[in-house]
Each structure stands twice: as structure tokens, then as C-alpha cells.
Amino acid sequence: MSESSERAGGQPEEKRRGLGGAIGDLLAPVAGFGVTFSNMFRPTVTEQYPYVRHPTAPRYHGRHQLNRYPDGLEKCIGCELCAWACPADAIFVEGADNTPENQHSPGERYGAVYQINYLRCIFCGLCIEACPTRALTMGNDFELAGPTREGLIFTKEELLAPLTQGMLGVPHPMVEGTTDRDYYRGEVTGPTADQIAWVERERPEDPTLEGARQAAATKAVR
């Protein structure tokens, strides 16, 4: 007789369990199915994506965007701080010098090349915190899947915010009499007559000219 049986009064374990233990073994699978059956009659919570799209949280970390100032100049100054802050090495930036004939952003530099590799990006948002000009933000777009690896390396043209009504296509000079600090402080609210005249002279067929003229006229009336 085993030591455990002796401690229990000298009877084998099978006899001590009796009828109750046998019934418990028999009903154990039924108890598992009980969980299944109880969930069968609960309301369906499956989201019918992509046929039904629910809005994301307001601060959801989705696809990146390179922003612009109200006159159309780009906010990115090519400082590469976002690339240095990225823990996944997903960002590549190459800066270039602004010139009077090729002014893309306020100040001396702009981001000539900007790429984000979404095969590496972990959407942590550290690049957003590192940006000194608030040029880089994250939107709510999460549908980034694609058939090729090359298609998931987004270029500057894909990341740059579109020109809204009233903005003037780049390149063009800064607002006359301003510095990059004036742009950072939000003192520039739209294109001026001098900027519009410069684009008319250099690029008379620019499609953003009409909207910029209307915005400047409305501003002058106010």
C-alpha cells in the first residue's frame, strides 16, 4: 500500500473518489461545451471591415504627413532629428539649401529627400516629438498594406500634405519682411501679393495661382 493511501485511511484513491468522482470526469467535457454554447447566443461583435469602417481614436498613430505653412511653404527644414530619434531606423532625410530661386521652406534648409519605410516603422511617435517645427505629424490612416516592398517606402511626394485652397505652390519666396521665426510663431496667414507676383513671373501656368489670388483678395477686403 502506498504512502498516500495510508495517509487517507488505508484505502486506494479510486475507492475514495467514489461515484461523485466518476460523474465529474464524465461531465467535464460538457462543462467545456457549456462555455461554447453560452457564447453562441450573445450579440455578434465582429466588425464588418472593410465594408463598415469605424472611426479611429482622435490621437491614433497612423500614416505620417509633412505639413505646410498657410502660404504653401513646407515646414520641414531637413534637420534629420526625426531620423536620429527613430528607434527602427525607418526614416531617411537628406537636406538641401534654400536659394532665392528655389525656396521650399522658411530659413536656410529644406528636406530635399524624405522617405519613411513602413516595413520598419513601429508607429511609436518619437519622430513627432523630435520635430522642432511641427512639420511631421501622424494622421488616422491605417490602411498601408501593399503588394510590393517598394510600395511601402513612402517618398516625400506621398507624405507631403496637399495644397489647400489659398496656398501657393512651391518654390516661392518667403513673405516679405519676415524670418523663419515669424513662420514658427504662426504670424504668416497666407500668400501675399509679392509672392503671387513672383510665381506669376516664374511659373505663369501654376494651377495654384487662382486660389492664391482669391485668398489674397479676400484677406485684403477684411
Rank of each mutant, 00 (worst) to 15 (best):
N117F: 01
G107Q: 06
I128W: 04
A161V: 09
E108I: 15
I116W: 00
A112V: 08
E129L: 13
Q165R: 14
T99I: 08
R109D: 05
L152Y: 02
C124G: 07
E129Q: 12
G95C: 02
E150A: 11
P100E: 03
N98A: 02
Y118I: 02
F142Y: 14
T99R: 10
R109F: 09
G125E: 04
F154Q: 05
Q165L: 10
R134P: 06
Q103T: 15
Y114A: 06
T133K: 11
F154N: 02
E150P: 00
L159F: 05
H104A: 13
P100L: 04
L152K: 03
Q115D: 11
E129H: 12
E129C: 10
V113D: 13
T137C: 06
P147A: 15
I153T: 01
L136N: 01
P147D: 15
F123C: 04
G125C: 07
G95I: 01
A161N: 08
I153M: 02
L152C: 01
A96F: 05
E143D: 15
D141E: 14
Y110W: 13
T155F: 05
T99H: 10
E129Y: 10
L163H: 08
N140K: 14
G125I: 04
G125K: 04
G139S: 11
L136R: 01
R149G: 13
I122P: 04
A145E: 10
N117P: 02
Y114G: 02
M138G: 02
Y118M: 03
E101S: 14
D141V: 13
P147T: 15
G166K: 00
I116V: 12
M167C: 07
D141I: 14
G139W: 07
T164H: 11
N98K: 01
A161R: 07
N140D: 13
Q103N: 15
P147C: 13
D97M: 12
L144V: 05
I122S: 10
G107R: 03
R134F: 14
E150V: 06
L119F: 05
Q165M: 11
E108Y: 15
Y118Q: 01
R149I: 11
C124H: 03
A145N: 08
I91G: 00
L119C: 07
L168M: 04
T137Y: 02
A145S: 09
I116P: 00
F123K: 04
T99W: 08
G151Q: 12
P100M: 03
T148I: 07
E108P: 08
P100H: 03
C131Y: 03
L119D: 09
E108G: 14
G111C: 09
C127L: 05
T164R: 11
Q103D: 15
G125S: 09
T133G: 06
H104Q: 15
H104Y: 15
Q103V: 15
G146T: 10
Y118G: 02
K156L: 08
F92A: 07
T99N: 06
